[in-house]
Amino acid sequence: MNDVDLNLLVALDVLLAEGSVTGAARRLGLSSSAMSRTLTRLRLATGDPLLVRAGRGLVPTPHATELRERVHELTRDVRAVLRPQNTQLGVAALEQTFTIRVSEAFLEFLAGPVVTAVAQAAPRIRLRFVAKPDKDARPLREGLIDLEIGLLGTSAPEIRTQLLFYDKLVGVARIGHPLLAGTVTSERYAACNHVVASKEGDRIEPIDGALEKLGLARAIMVVVPGYPDAMRIARQSDLVAAVPRSCLGNTMASDHAATAGLESFELPFPMPEFKISAMWHPRLDADPAHRWLRDTVMSVCRAAYPRR
């Protein structure tokens, strides 16, 4: 691999994270001129400008934005491969408490498999799940929680992330609902009464935005805090709900009680996938016990929701 310089991968990861030649140079301990030369090499290697001038700052190109997460994961994997193997960690003897911040939906559908996997390998570990009222990074920074699982949204650039699985909104209604008798069109869907899950109590995007583009609007009759609540109401009424596909069960619990009495359907307009990720503070990145926990959670999630 004489024609591959892995240092360029590290430099690209830092440049895309910082969005600044000066900031990247500071993190890597280089001069600004050396970092500028490295950016030039990266532009030649990728065939893309990567970062372009916008006023006094730099903004990523679409290709750079697409590469950001992939480069970050590759860099982390390379560092993990080249790190000396830790033979000191005895998982079975670990006696520790990990605090994990999750949504109500994760607690309902995936906490059980995670607990089982952890208990089988490390019976002395205690897991403490706490609610996720917002996406504030402060608890991660201050060490109040060890791991967060959910949608990315924190504004803290230093937070480490790992993709767990892709999710997508689908519709659910009680078995025998009139909507399910025939093709579910946008018009028939919008004409139903709806229950939505929203902590803020407002409407849910991107569903309402997609309907607006079609000149349609739905009637939201009930707002609840979480997706399991929306599913319970949809099961017991004629209201229709939209929930992540992950709420419909998984390879480890295909007969979950929460989905009993419900039938799912694809929403009759395009819905983008969204990423469910694990997040943690970099001070825990190299901790053997924390790394083992991350790997365990990732294995459970990817087994439960394999890429379609």
Rank of each mutant, 00 (worst) to 15 (best):
E148T: 11
I149R: 03
I149D: 01
G150I: 06
G150V: 06
G153S: 11
T154I: 12
T154C: 09
P157S: 07
I159S: 02
R160M: 14
R160S: 12
R160A: 13
L163W: 12
F165G: 01
D167C: 04
D167K: 04
K168I: 12
L169H: 05
L169D: 03
L169I: 05
G171C: 09
V172Q: 06
A173Q: 04
G176P: 08
H177V: 12
H177L: 03
H177Y: 07
P178T: 09
L180F: 04
A181W: 06
G182C: 09
T183Q: 14
V184F: 08
S186R: 14
E187V: 15
Y189P: 00
Y189I: 06
A191T: 10
C192R: 11
N193D: 15
N193F: 14
N193Y: 13
H194W: 06
V195G: 01
A197S: 15
S198P: 00
S198G: 04
K199M: 09
E200M: 05
E200I: 05
E200V: 09
E200Q: 12
R203I: 10
E205N: 12
E205V: 09
E205Q: 13
I207E: 01
D208T: 09
D208A: 02
D208M: 02
A210M: 13
L211H: 00
L211P: 00
L211E: 04
K213F: 07
L214V: 04
G215I: 09
L216G: 01
R218G: 08
A219R: 15
A219K: 15
M221I: 14
M221Q: 14
M221D: 13
V224T: 12
P228C: 04
D229P: 00
A230N: 03
M231W: 07
M231N: 05
R232G: 11
R235M: 04
R235C: 03
Q236T: 14
S237F: 12
S237M: 11
S237L: 10
L239I: 09
V240W: 07
A242F: 04
V243G: 01
P244I: 02
R245K: 12
R245P: 00
S246P: 02
C247K: 01
T251S: 13
M252R: 10
A253N: 14
S254Y: 12
D255P: 00
A257K: 13
T259I: 15
A260W: 10
G261Y: 04
L262H: 10
L262T: 12
S264I: 13
S264H: 15
S264P: 09
S264M: 14
F265R: 11
E266G: 10
L267N: 08
L267C: 11
P268C: 06
P268V: 11
P270A: 14
P270M: 03
P270H: 13
M271G: 00
P272M: 05
